[in-house]
Structures are given as C-alpha cells and as structure tokens.
Design a protein around this nucleic acid. Structure first.
Length: 971
RNA sequence: GCCUGGGUGGCGGAAUUGGUAGACGCAAGGGACUUAAAAUCCCUUGAGGCUGAGUCCUCGUACGAGUUCGAUUCUCGUCCCAGGCACCA
C-alpha cells in the first residue's frame, strides 16, 4: 500500500526533461510543423536568423520564443503556419573569430569556454570560418529544437550555401539593372598617421563623434570661390555678409572634382581637410587675410553682392574657415554684426555704415515674428557674442524654426516647405547647379589611439545601395503606411529612419559571403544579403533536396519569385523538371508575402529598413510585407548582456537549468513586447513553481474522474467560473492579437489560476474539467510540452496534438453578469466582516447581515437609468424619489444617500456601468444560498434579513445597508 | 547635440478612448499544516491619521503650472533615465 502510493507520487512529479524530449520527438516524427500549401489561409512568420559567432543566448531566446508563440497561436486558430529558420554567417566577425582562435588569443579562448560553454577539446579546432559555421549551426539547431520551437527545419540553410549565393547574385544583378546599386565615394573616420580607417575601439577621444554632412555654399569673388559650410543651407536666402577672421591663415588652392577646376580660398586647416576628400587639391599661394575683409562677394543663389566683415569668433578648424552670416535667424551673427556698429573699420577699407545692412527674414515660425534671432537675443537678455547665453538663444531659435518653421515667399520655389524637410532637396539642387557641395566634418574632434587627429576621408570607387533615391523611399513610405506595426508607436520611428537613411556601402573586401556578380573584386556586405531571404525559405525546401547550384539561373528566380517568363522556358534554361518548377512557383505564390516579421529592436535602424527597401524594390505590391513587430532586449539580473564580455546566458543553459516550458513561460511573462526584460533567477524559480502547480492541478482534475459538468445543473459559483473563464479567453486573444504576451499570460495563466483556486475554495467542482479543457489549449502556445502531456492525459489519442487543437474562442453566452455580481456581493460581505472583526478585535459568536432596503435599490436603479440618459442630477433624483408617497417616510435619509451615491455612479467606468445597468439580483437569497461559505470563512452562525424587515437589529445597523453592500452586526 | 521611448510602492510592473491608482508577480512579515524541513494554504504590505465597531478620512503616479465635475492619462515648461545616430553584425 505504502509502496503503491509512493509510485503514484513519483508519477505525479513532473519530469520536464523526459516529457519535453518525448513531445519534441513526437512532433518531429509526425511532421506537424512541416506545412504544405492547402486550402487554409496561410501565415508566414519569420524572425531574423541568428548570426553564428557564438551560441544562442537569452536575447535570441526572447525574440524566437515570441515568434514561436505567435506561430503556435495562429496555427491553433486554424491558419496554415510556416515558421522557418536559417543561419547567418556572412561578414567579417566569424573570420575574425577563426583567426583569434587559431592564434589561441587568451581572452577569446576564455570567453568561448567560460561564457559560450564550448568544450575545451573542441574550441581549438574551430580555427577556420567553415568549422565555426558547421559547429554553431548544429548547436543552434539543437538548442532551438530543445526549447520546442515549431520550426520547419526542412528549409534551413546558411548564407554561404552555394545555392543561397545564386539567389543573392540574382538579387544583386536585378538591383543593379534597376539602377539601385551605384558607384560612389563615402566618408569614413580616418587616421592620417596610420593611413587607415579607425573603428570605434581605435579611438582615444571622440568615440561619440559622428560624421556630419555640411552643405558647402560657393560665394564668388573675382572668379574665385569662398566656400561657406552650413548645416542650414536654406538660410542662404538670408545672408547679409560673410565673416572672415583676419587673425587666421588663409590659402588659395586649386580644387578639382569630376573634371572641373575651381580656385578656392579657405583657411589653412580647411585646406588640409580638403585633401582627404574626393577632390584633387593643389596649393597655389597664401592669401593675406586682411585682403579678404571688406570685399564684395556674390551670393550664388540670389546673385546679390554682400560684404565680408571681420570676426574673431570664426575658427580656422571649423568648416572652410569662412562663415556666412544670417543675422535674422542666427543670434551669433546678429550679435557680431551689432558689435561692429560702433567699430571703426576703415583699416579694412570699410567706410559704409553697417546699420544700413538690412536683416533678411526667410522663415515663418509661429513663436516668432520677423527676426527670430533679434527676439531671442532680447528675450534672453544676451549682451554680446561672448555672452554664454548666446548659445542658448541659438538653440532656441534653431529648435523652434526646425520643428515649426516654414520657408517664406522670398525663397522662391521653396516657399511653403517645412524647414525640417528642406535640407536634402535644396542641397541636391545646389549641387546640380554647381553652386554647392557636400562637406563632411566630425561633430567633435576625434583623436586616434596613436595620438593623431583624425580626419574624414572619402573612400572612392565604392559600391552603394542607393537608399537615398527619393522614388525608392516613397515606395517604402507607402509600404509602411499599409503595414501593421507593433507597437504602433514605432511607425513614426520607421518613417524617420527611412527619411534619415542614406546610400549604404554594400561591398567589402574581407569576410564570408557572395561576390558581387558584376564586380568580382567585391564581396556583398552582410546586411545586404539578408533582405529578402524569407522567400528563399520557400524555394530552399526544393533546393535542399539536392539541386545543383548551376541550375539556379536568373530565369528560375525570375519565374518563381517574379512570375516572369514561362515554366517551359525556365525548364529549358535550367534543365529542371517543369513540374518541379511549377511547384516552386505555386509554393511561392501560396506562402508569400511575409505576414509578420518579428525582431529585436536593435534591427530597426538597419536590417528591418533594408528588408522593406529590398522588398519594395523587387516585388510587386501584393508581395510586400504585411506586418512588423519589434521586441526589447534581455538583461541578466539587471546587467546588460554582452557576447564578448559577459554576462551571458545561453539558450542551452537556460533549458538545462529550468527546462523548455519554464524558460518560455518566464521570458514571455516577464516583460511586455517593447520593454526590456530582465532575467532574474528568483523569478524563474517562481515561474517553475507556478508551472508545476498548473500541472498538479490539471492532474488532480483528470484523476478525480473528470468529465464535463456542463450538462448538469449549474450553481451560481459554476456560472461564475465559466463567466470568468470566458473573460480570460477574450482578454488573452485580444492580447495575442497585439502581441502582448505578458498580458496574455496574466490572463491565460495567473488570473485564471487564481479564479480556479477561488472556485475550489468556494466548493466548486462541477465544471473543473470543462475549464481545464479550455485552459490547457489557452496555454499551449506558451508551454506546449506540458500542455501536450496534460492533453494526452485527458484522453486524447497519440496523434491528437494540443498544438493542432482549436484555440479557445470567446463565447459570450457564458458571460454572466448576475453571477459575477452575486459573487462580488459575497466577497465584499466577507471582507467587510473581516475588516470589522479586525478593528473591533471581536471573536463574533453571531453575525447578522441586512441587505439593502427596497427604496435604496429603487434609488440606485433610478440613478443608473438617469446616468444612462446622460442626466444624472442629485436634485432631480431626490425630487423624483420624494414624489413616491411610500418613500416619504425616508425623507431624511434620501438626500443623504443620494449625495453619497451620485458621485460613485457618475464616475463609473462604462464597463462597470453596463454590468450594473440591467442587473437582477436577490441579495438576500444569494447570501442565504451561500451562507455555508460565509459561515466557514467567519466561523460563527450568520443570519440574513432585509433592512426592510429586520427581525433582529439591536444596534440599528440595518440603516447602513445599501445595494451590493449589506449592513453588518456582530456580537 | 539630434531623434525615439520612458519616469507609478522595497522590486518587476497594471490601469482600453480622462472615471475608485497600485491588478498580477517577486521580496518581506505573520499564521495554519508538519516531529522538522520542503511543498501547500490563509492573512498583511504606498505614506500618514482618527474611531463610540470603520461598510473610514487625508495625502500620494519625477517637478512646476494649466485645461476639466474629474488628470498616472491631455497641454506647456523643467529635471532625470534608456536606446539609436550607420558602413558593424
């Protein structure tokens, strides 16, 4: 007997590893996650494939688990779901890692044994990129299988597969033909001493520095050019003069670009910087600075002549060393000009009165009048150009004008355009007219490790993806507009990023990857080859069966992915079977577009953008992605994770320690989609207990000869339980639609669990089996293994997977307001009694309850109906009540009660209001029927009366009774 | 600096379109069961205050104003935090 009980107990103990292995192999054997096109609606969800320079970690775990839970939820909702996975290995990090391992770099060896947990006998062998790829792709797949992702593994690939390279070549040829890949130059941080680009870790000072693109405006003087660098080219229209610092050295140089020669006058330092740009620069001679002051130069855009004036604030190292002055909109310019009013400038040959220089206003901003700079200076009380408040005034004007400013009539064809939108368009026009150029400069000085000052260097002859192309961008905006973006707040961010995106260098000399098909010297950069590969999952189901890469011609991809040409022609071109090609085409047509791409937020400004750009460039509009979801990061016990420094928690470690279901449950419940999650061991432990409790409760229900109780008579508490269950079903589904996995688990797990416990505490049991039947399906996407185990425990056949069962759909007929209000009455009464006991420190021998008198019920209902009609007014309510002769005897109490009740009702939420609107509840009967529960909880006999006829009321407590709050007397 | 998001108990965090702030979880404390422990269950937990037994009161959502019958929520200003700012995946 004792022996038998022990065996039984062991079975009840949940063995995660065994159960999870079992269901993983059953899923695998039955191929339920290997979908083929059928008559159902499809759902293609993809997650960015992991980059394999290490083991999968908690960050991957989160993103992939979110994807899996969506896939499983959609699958249970009846969609034909495809969730594929591949491996990203293109680029330099894996090559770098192989070198480090080959050199036995101590830090690398340490990080990869200790943090990535690679056995010491294996690690030294990973000294070639290919070996690293082989090793980690096997490890990653194992890890993802062990956490139970519903991935179709037939479609996996790595980005160095010969067939994948064919696909990438096709794509890049296509983009090249469309003119979206162009040759050009691009600016990099450069150390003149090392003669090399500097990366962030090579920088001693100025890691924060960014490369800022100034517009260089070419003012003319005697056939020579005085270029001025500005961040606000639109202010050219307001230039009244230039500033030249007579105390710095200026030089005359010959500048050649695109076969055009010009003579420029710039500061000596600017000359040095120019030599690193994509211009040929030849020194001619020094120019005495004073000869540059007081001369007339021509504004290239307006054709007007303006004078050059002396200014000590102009720094040789900033821009060209010559500055244009816009006193109407730039406080510094205004102050500097004003400071000169009283100065004698005859030494520069300037005799005219500077007060005659009229400020030119060109921007309308709602906070300002004609001259924003003047207003800002006066408002802040800035005294002169050396006043620190001048900077503040500049910021203020700049910010307001940039965000709310619009160009005025005097800007000609630009009039009416927002200041925030003008820079790129205007700069392009200036360049076209040959009167402007782009000039790159750091936002702050950058010093190399070697101690030298860095410059911006133009790397020439580089291949670019022409993301700045306005038509291309327009298509992306259109795509975003039609897309579902989760969370919605990110839509603005995406649009901003599209706006900000410039041409991107897309080729490298080093690393793994595919050669640029039209220029074999270059390798395609790794973000560029990861843009439309979701379509490759579809074709790779066929390729992976062993098709020679040579057969993957451009015609094949044209036909399958773009529906160009015919199946016959494609068959001849490739030597592949017509039927096979038709099948590929058919599969693609079925599965594409991507229904959802879900990713970590680190990819917003790069991969996700490129994903959109390439899709709109290559595919027809009906194949553009439909939705995009972004999730936050994961930290470990409050610390940021780091692949190279730690801490790091690998997926495998999490599974080994906590099991698949618990890791899934925890990562999904600990934070909502966009928030960063923090992995804390104490909370994972608690998740473990919760899941075990769930299993135990399920087993108890099954063991107690569980069967449906819906056919029998339902008591109040049963109806309450079913009503609560449906609320959870509804809320869970709503949460899942918006990818709020945390909210979904709150509803599907914690709240429902608490309700079930209360149901049991109240003596309910009739519908437990029915609740479990829905509950286990509700939870299946989150913790699928344990749910399969329970599902089979409930008597489902080996091939009836809960993973394929129907997800519970909200059944409004089970919502029972009266049952919920009745239960609320009982809970309220109970807690009121307990509170009184606590305050009085009584141990009651008897409790007496008085339910609300009829007149208060009437008053309450009347108030509700008045509120319903939108005119709840205490005076009117009192009058109406008093008009009833029977109510006269409560003449004193009515106003008191109304005054108290009206604010409660008028501040009610609509949901609550609707619930009370038509409630019918006999409070006395309800309390009497559930007296047993109250007696058990309080531990003394209880009597119930209505306040209308209190048979026993020694302290006149009955007068406190009101609807849903019975009065209480204890003795 | 620019862009985006955020600031609520001891902690993680809830609070549909403005409607009883602090759901749910963690941690902590108390109690029950147990020889004991674990597990489980029950109670308390924003701060402060009063009482004749309490179906209680006051204050509280970074700070300062404003709109509103009513503001964590909307507007303006201030302070603080996180992420992104690229040729790297």
């Amino acid at each position: 007997m004792v022996q038998r009980e022990k065996v039984r107990a062991m079975e009840e103990e949940y063995n995660a590893q065994e159960v999870e292995n079992k269901w993983q192999s059953r899923w695998n054997e039955s191929r339920i996650f290997e979908p083929e096109p059928d008559e159902r609606e499809k759902f293609l969800i993809t997650i960015p494939y992991p980059y394999l320079n290490g083991n999968l970690h908690a960050g991957h775990t989160r993103t992939f688990t979110i994807g899996d839970v969506i896939a499983r939820h959609k699958r249970m909702q009846g969609y034909n779901v495809l969730y594929p996975m591949g491996f990203h290995v293109t680029g330099t990090p894996i090559v770098g890692l192989a070198e480090l391992i080959d050199n036995k770099d101590p830090e690398t060896m340490d990080v990869y044994t200790r943090l990535h947990r690679i056995p010491e006998d294996i690690l030294p062998g990973l000294n070639k990129p290919e070996k690293i790829v082989d090793f980690f792709s096997v490890e990653a797949e194992k890890a993802m299988r062990s956490i139970g992702y519903s991935i179709d593994w037939r479609r996996k690939f790595t980005t160095t597969d010969p067939t994948y390279k064919k696909f990438i070549e096709w794509q890049f040829n296509l983009l090249h033909e469309k003119g979206l890949i162009v040759k050009g130059s691009h600016p990099v941080k450069w150390c003149p001493n090392d003669n090399n680009p500097v990366e962030d870790h090579d920088i001693l000072h100025g890691e924060q520095a960014t490369i800022v693109d100034y517009t260089l405006v070419k003012f003319e003087y005697n056939g020579m050019i005085l270029p001025c660098a500005t961040l606000r080219p639109e202010t050219i229209f307001g230039v009244t003069n230039l500033w030249v610092n007579p105390d710095i050295k200026h030089v005359k140089v010959k500048v050649s670009k695109d076969g055009k020669d010009e003579i420029w006058i710039v500061s000596e330092e600017a000359h040095t910087k120019l030599t690193y740009t994509d211009r040929e620069v030849e020194f001619i001679e020094e120019v005495p600075s004073e000869t540059l002051v007081g001369i007339k130069v021509t504004n290239p855009l307006t054709g007007k002549d303006v004078i050059t004036l002396p200014a000590s604030f102009v720094k040789a190292g900033n821009g060209s060393g010559i500055v244009m002055s816009v006193p109407a909109h730039a406080p510094f310019d205004y102050l500097a000009l004003k400071d000169l009013y009283e100065k004698d400038l005859t030494e520069y040959g300037i005799t005219e009165d500077l007060r005659d220089i009229k400020l030119i206003s060109l921007i309308d901003a709602k906070e300002f009048g004609e001259y924003p700079a003047v207003e800002a200076v006066e408002q802040l009380g800035v005294t002169d150009q050396n006043d620190p408040k001048a900077t503040e005034a500049t910021k203020m004007v700049y910010r307001r004008e940039f965000h709310g400013g619009v160009l005025k009539e005097n800007t000609g064809k630009y009039a009416g355009i927002a200041v925030s939108k003008i820079k790129d368009a205007l700069t392009r026009d200036l360049i076209e007219q040959g009167i402007g150029e782009i000039f790159y400069e750091f936002s702050e000085p950058v010093i190399c490790r070697c101690g030298h000052k860095c410059v911006v260097n133009m790397v020439k002859g580089q291949w670019f993806l022409n993301y700045s192309n306005p038509e291309w961008k327009d298509k992306v905006y259109r795509c975003i507009e039609k897309m579902n973006i989760i969370p919605e707040e990110l839509r603005v961010e995406f649009n901003n990023k599209v706006d900000w995106l410039k041409d991107k260098a897309c080729a490298r000399k080093k690393g793994l990857g595919t050669r640029l098909p039209f220029d074999q010297d270059w390798l395609i950069e790794s973000l560029g080859d990861s843009t439309i590969y979701m379509s490759y999952y579809i074709t790779n189901k066929f390729f992976a069966q062993g098709i020679e890469p040579e057969k993957l011609t451009a015609k094949l991809f044209d036909y399958v992915l773009l529906n160009k040409g015919t199946v016959q022609a494609t068959a001849i071109d490739t030597g592949l079977d017509e039927h096979l090609i038709a099948q590929m085409r058919n599969d693609f047509e079925y599965w594409y577009p991507v229904d959802m791409r879900s990713s970590g937020k680190d990819l917003v400004a790069n991969h996700l953008l490129f994903f959109l750009f390439h899709h709109v460039a290559i595919f027809d509009e009906d194949k553009w992605p439909r939705s995009l979801a972004v999730n936050g990061f994961v930290s470990l016990e409050g610390q940021k994770m780091s692949k190279s420094k730690g801490p790091i928690l690998t997926l495998k470690e999490a599974i080994d320690t906590y099991s698949a279901d618990i890791s899934r449950m925890y990562i999904l419940s600990s934070a909502e989609q966009t928030q960063d999650a923090d992995w804390r061991n104490t909370e994972v432990e608690s998740a473990k207990k919760q899941v075990e409790r769930f299993y135990k409760l399920a087993m108890e229900i099954i063991d107690s000869d569980g069967k449906s109780g819906l056919a029998g008579e339902l008591k109040l508490i049963d109806r309450w339980m079913l009503s609560r269950l449906e609320q959870c079903v509804r809320d869970t589904n709503n949460d899942m639609t918006s990818l709020r996995t945390r909210g979904a688990l709150q509803n599907a797990f914690f709240l429902l669990y608490n309700d079930i416990k209360w149901y049991q505490r109240r003596g309910g049991s009739a519908v437990l089996y029915d609740v479990l039947n829905r509950w286990v399906r509700l939870m299946a996407p989150f913790i699928p293994h344990i749910c399969e185990e329970i599902w089979s425990g409930m008597g489902h056949d080996e091939n009836e997977f809960v993973s394929l069962a129907a997800y519970p759909v909200f059944m409004p007929e089970y919502i029972d307001n009266d049952a919920e209000l009745a239960e609320e009455l009982i809970v309220n009464t109970l807690s009121d009694i307990e509170e009184i006991i606590k305050v009085t420190k009584l141990s009651p021998k008897k409790a007496v309850l008085y339910t609300s008198p009829q007149w208060k019920n009437d008053a309450f209902k009347l108030a509700i109906s008045m509120q319903n009609g939108g005119e709840l007014n205490p005076g009117k309510l009192i009058k109406t009540l008093m008009a009833e002769p029977d109510n006269r005897r409560y003449g004193k109490e009515i106003p008191k009660y109304v005054q108290k009740m009206v604010p409660d009702i008028s501040s009610m939420k609509t949901e609550r209001f609707e619930m009370l609107n038509d409630f019918k509840l006999d409070e006395k009967k309800t309390l009497e029927e559930n007296i047993e529960c109250l007696v058990n909880e309080i531990g003394c006999p209880i009597e119930v009366y209505t306040a209308d006829e209190p048979e026993y009321d020694p302290e006149k407590k009955s007068r406190f009774a009101s609807p849903l709050r019975p009065a209480i007397y204890l003795e």
